[in-house]
Design a protein around this nucleic acid. Sequence first.
RNA 1: GCUCGUAUGGCGGAAUUGGUAGACGCGAUAGACUCAAAAUCUAUUUUCCGCAAGGAAGUCUCGGUUCAAGUCCGAGUACGAGCACCA
Length: 938
Amino acid sequence: MYDFKKIEKKWQNYWEENETFKTDIWDFTKPKFYALDMFPYPSGVGLHAGHPEGYTATDMVARMKKMQGYNVLHPMGWDAFGLPAEQYAINTGNHPEKFTFENIKTFKTQLKSLGFAYDWNREISTTDPTYYKWTQWIFKQLYQDGYAKYVDMPVNWCEELGTVLSNDEVIDGKSERGGFPVIRKNMKQWVMDIPAYAEKLLNNLETLDWPESTKEIQRNWIGKSIGALVDFKVLNSNQTFTVFTTRCDTLFGATYCVLAPEHKIVNEITTKEQKEIVEEYQKMCATKSELERTELNKEKTGVFTGAYAINPVNNKEIPIWISDYVLATYGTGAIMAVPAHDDRDYEFAKKFNLPIIQVLEQETGETKENEILKNSIVAIVHDKEKDQYLTINWHKNGGRLFIGGTIEENETPLECAFREVLEETGYADIELIQETFKIRHHYYAYNKDKYFQIECTGFLFELKSADKQNQNLDEDEAFDIEWVSKDTVLEEIKDALHSKTFEYVQNGGAMTEDGIHINSEFLNGLNKEEAIEKMIEWLEAHQVGKKQINYRLRDWIFARQRYWGEPVPIVHMENGTDYVLEDSELPLILPTMDDYKGKNGKAPLENAEQWKQVEINGVKGTRETSTMPGSAGSSWYFLRYIDPNNDEKLADPELLKHWLPVDLYVGGPEHAVGHLLYARFWNEYLYDKGIVPVQEPFQKLVHQGMILGENGIKMGKRYPEYVVNPTDVVESHGADSLRLYEMFMGPLQADKPWSQTGLEGSKKFLDRVYRIFEEGKVVECTTPELERIYHQTVKKVTNDYETLNFNTAISQMMIFINAVYKEEKISKEYAEHFIQLLNPVCPHITEEIWHTFLGHNTTIAESTWPTYEEEKTKEDTYEMIVQVNGKVRGKIEVSVNTSKEEMETIAKEIENVKTHLEGKEIVKIITVPQKLVNIVIK
RNA sequence: GCUCGUAUGGCGGAAUUGGUAGACGCGAUAGACUCAAAAUCUAUUUUCCGCAAGGAAGUCUCGGUUCAAGUCCGAGUACGAGCACCA
């Protein structure tokens, strides 16, 4: 039996004493490999089961790469600043600094007990002044280049946490940490102009080997949309406003405009009569929290300003409303409303009875020459009680249809619909429910032998009484009147016009699909794409608008009114200017305070009187008292690992050039937009400054999945009995068993439930491996039976480690060990190489065997990775499959050299195949060499 | 609502990318060792019919392409994630 407790401690000490995993950073003679984990936030509760998963993955690749002759950089550090640390400190009555220090100590001990091959000489902490000196220095560059700005803007304010939050820290209108309500509020804030990099951040995604889902999330978050700006004049005023729209082709359908309640011209254009109600509405919106705003979005609200705008394309006067469904922070904070073709505008128009003008029309049927033009209707009558629809069945002469007809002279479409229903079915007592959008339809009338083009209006009626009058039919009208269910309608009404009309009736709402423009003067007859292009041309020619690209990505709010973060190296001077600290004044050290809690919504550093008050060149000033957000320090830490002790530069340029980019980056998917976007932004900025040599810092990114509790539910406070603590597992089963099990559970990227018996199975495998050596199964021998499987194992394990398919690599090693047990012996060479293959997953037991049983006196970590011979992985016979009509009817062992002809002959000789072929005609035979023969019979 | 992703035995999961579905592990059953238990070793284990040989069904559902579909195409369902009045 192997004593994992003794062994693991022993080799951890050995690696530490011998600095086995120290990186010689200046050794450029070997190819480099930079394996990086997302550094942890050292919480008070220590490691959880998910940490070892991602860390083991990078550790395995790092260890293999080292044995393959790479110079490997595999560092670890601490993302120790930020809200959670401070919040936890407050809740437990600790000082954040002391508390963080202790947590780091715990984390480090725990990580060491798992045997990770980190170079601890390169350990960094974002809270270390020698580190945050450079965070401040980068901020300074950004400030001087105009990307860090101090602006008055609406922000996410969390009263409970007493700070502003960035967009990615607000989830469903609540703070990510603590779940406290967040409101919008105007405040003077530090922000980063990340939208300036939106296009680069978007385009570079294409070049990255990242999960497609993560790239998609970033694309959505950046939210590029191509549209146009259109200027509107306000009637009887010299005011104008500009709207942003992606659908400028629908401008002829604009029947009103909406401004965000906060829009700056609202107060100036509002008429006397409307003033009171407008101000009341503005006040109501201002006090709504984000959550209330989203919860209330089911019902549209808004008020009329009394003012009118002039539609630049047709000079029509349209009313200007304000509503909170228009956001002040997106586009221009103003929209033109086209209720016919936008769901939100449609809903608003319906509620406030605003006009709806259709400017796009769908086309059905096939266009023919010499069509006769007509206007017509489709009338759908619904019987609410029976939930049935009135149809007429033309049988062979046109199938099932609703009631349709041609509009006569001096008749409105609605009058026509009433008349047709009465004439054809005799029902008179019906009530109009809905008029739908018009559809252009092309068809052939068999009874008239002519092609028609009709513009057709659809109607939905409700049957009020089943009383019938006499029908009034033409002679050639032979049909049955039938009431049918919705399912029958969907199944049997095949006519494109009628089924489309039914679709409109069912869905309600705006017509948002593409179509052909109508009621739009110079756009008539064009589709959406063509019309947008033409409209932009027109707007630009008339100088009332232009093409515009808009991003959803907002400024990154870069200040927190909290204590535990990097101080911002800015002084607000008495004379109104801002002074940025000289490089020689960095780092600006966070003052030690006894009371680090803010009061009355003020930042804690406001209370650091001595620290705050400064005098520069005879002018008095006060330091900025906000601190940087948690994601500041984590936006460049991967650079600092390369040169962690440099006090001249953030890192030596030569080293950066050699070591970047990160070759493998592993971390949770929860950082898809926060950290991973901010870090890309800073890196891209530093690239533009010539400081960093690569545009993208993380070439290959992988997200490890979540380790769920044994109940299949996320481990956490809700089911404490299912929480697995890795430290306990190290105690009970050993670090090697834990590492092996977590890698064997399933694909790295998938969420996987914990299984205690599964863990024990992994431990059993290690016992089984150890016993081979303990029981002296390693002997001087040749084992030809093992040769093929050995080479296959080296091949599969090497490839699978490379592609991070650790679960299948491990299963191959199990197959190998099973084979060894079957042979009951193994040569020293094979045993030695197997131990090397196992080493990246289970470094302790393999190091022990390497020394004790295999007699080495240097570390296995510096041994050379085994190689395989492709020829020897191949079998010389295989099991040929014989199918008859695609069903397996026989299997037979044949040589790999069997020719196609031989394969067919052998196949037909098999007893069971013969019985299936008996009395049948062979149509053809498909033969796949080294695989199968499929005989097709009739 | 929109955008992604996933779906395979009792369970975790394999399947060379269109060619034997269920590798490997867990669990279960039986046997060996043992006074006994644990540990260990050996065998069986998708379901159904059959003593067996063998046969039938089977990768969320329905349909299609193909000699051949877990894999490709079309429609749908369920679960998960992201976004959500983004004009």
